[in-house]
Design a protein around this nucleic acid. Structure first.
Lengths: 299, 299
DNA sequence: AATATGTTTTTTATTGATAAAGAACAATTT
DNA sequence: AAATTGTTCTTTATCAATAAAAAACATATT
């Protein structure tokens, strides 16, 4: 085989949603506009239109594209099919190393992973190279990959750098003062935090996204691609790590949420010293949380 | 074709050197020992031995491996042939983007580079993915790569992070005090620095390696893989950048060398404050030097 | 028993091929 | 003329094949 048509399938699914929102008798915009709306090339847009026409959802001829019938569930492709091989491999790999009980130092053979995941060597190899930037695996040239693993060392090193970056970012925020966009964006998050804190039992699963938003505001304000990259790494690690570590999730989230609120409050009151202290406290707490959840000692 | 035999050729060249050093009538050690000495597998060691036997350099049968004649120049493979395709692509690419006059924002097509470099898609693709961690190129998914380029922004962002890391590393060094290994290692570099400074006209080309050594001591003492990774990036950037920017090379190197010496002197005298001040001054000077040599404004 | 060599099996580095997706060009329609 | 569609050409994502290199297994020497 060669390339699969997951982009087409994904675009088709999204187009069906769009068609549904237009309703019967509605008309689709020009191909160029669909191109932009879907984020794909016109070639694929046309393939999608052709299919929608074939299954009778629209009538397409020339520039007329009228909705004939509402999409049915059966018109959609399964979500699995809308993912590229590389996207699939990413998930598979993360579950493999985080879910499986591989010890640090474990040897990873491309050939073995290829068999386990049912992907081709190139896709797997390219994924491993991409992933290696996260510092969790290393390549022995001309040989195999070695899992460094999510060890205490890893977590501490990660946090030392995060600490440096975020403290610097926070100081910068304070220096720029209350009128800066980032400062204002942080203040605006108060409402969302209060909502989650007020009803933690029902809402605690929504906290991770808010957490990322909070820290991203700080990081992005630094305008530094290297810091951005590092933060992306941190996000990925946290995302996958906590998917496998559900212990005390609600308590953890509530505590962090309240720490955020303390920071925001201090900022709102213009008390820089207090804000800084609260923020540092939050980072320390986050560090402890992460370290506590690490299962492996370092190799 | 498939994989080339550059590892074999490289090992053979190195083995010829080894054989020469043994001299006539000398004997080579066991295959296992050669494996370790050459850093390759026994399979390849045996291929090398077989070749050495074939061309009459050694007599090999069973565990006896006697040197029969001194290697000749013609026995060696050309250096070009001892490089793997991926190594070759790396050099080609660096010269392409640093030497060519590509502007930031330039579009890089894998297909074009494949043609230009005479390599296969996978090798090129894998290289670009590896290289993208340096923040100089970005991928538009399902499309091409975009050269972000060595712009003022890039240099400033790079230096901001370097500043943070190195200042932190230096403070740590001071905290650990005169008896720590890193502290001592730095002091030991004084001689090498004095030699270069004394005879700068003849020796200035040796400074970059010493410079890297100096900074590496600081960085490695941090024991943090993320900081290590970043420093590797910095090294690569500097290495290639200065290969294309030879302006004032001697002056630049002398100035930096003397700054290092001031730091070392202050350390030797146990004057922490002065050492710190000199080190910060050195970083600032390095920043200015780098920024001054950037040719492109940011896109 | 430990270490070395001989032989077979597995894995990696690299290439070439191909359908899908993207981009460029040409022909229409408003 | 500008925007839209129709058509062709190029590039990318992915797979399958293969020689070189590594690893594993088996046999022979000290």
């Amino acid at each position: 085989m060669s390339r699969d048509n997951s982009i087409y399938k994904d675009a088709l699914n999204r187009s069906l949603g769009y068609v549904a929102s237009l309703g019967l008798g509605g008309t689709l915009p020009s191909e160029l506009e669909l191109t932009q709306r879907l984020g794909i090339s016109r070639t694929t847009v046309r393939a999608v239109l052709a299919h929608l026409h074939d299954i009778g959802v629209i009538d397409w001829s020339g520039r007329s594209k009228r909705v004939l019938r509402a999409p049915r569930d059966a018109d959609y492709f399964a979500k699995e099919e809308t993912l590229s091989t590389s996207a699939r491999v990413e998930t598979q790999f993360m579950e493999y190393i985080l879910g499986g009980d591989l010890k640090p130092g474990a040897i990873l053979h491309e050939s073995e992973l290829v068999r386990a995941f049912g992907a081709s060597t190139s896709v797997l190899r390219e994924f491993l190279i991409k992933f290696s930037r996260f510092g969790l695996i290393d390549k022995e040239p001309n040989r195999h990959w070695v899992l460094r693993g999510f060890t205490k060392d890893f977590a501490m090193e990660l946090f030392d750098v995060r600490d440096m970056f975020e403290k610097r970012a926070f100081d910068r925020l304070l220096t720029k003062g209350k009128d800066s966009p980032a400062y204002q964006s942080l203040l605006k998050l108060e409402g969302a935090h209060r909502e989650i804190a007020r009803n933690i039992e029902a809402e605690y699963l929504r906290f991770p996204r808010l957490d990322e938003k909070f820290h991203r505001i700080l990081i992005q304000d630094m305008n530094n691609r290297f810091i951005d990259d590092f933060f992306e790494l941190v996000s990925v690690i946290f995302h996958y790590h906590y998917r496998w570590n559900k212990q005390d999730e609600q308590d953890r989230n509530l505590a962090a949420c309240q720490q955020h609120l303390s920071v925001i409050e201090a900022l709102r009151n213009g008390d820089d010293a207090a804000a800084r202290a609260q923020f540092h406290g939050h980072l320390n707490a986050a560090r402890e949380t992460l370290l506590a959840s690490v299962t492996w000692d370092s190799a």
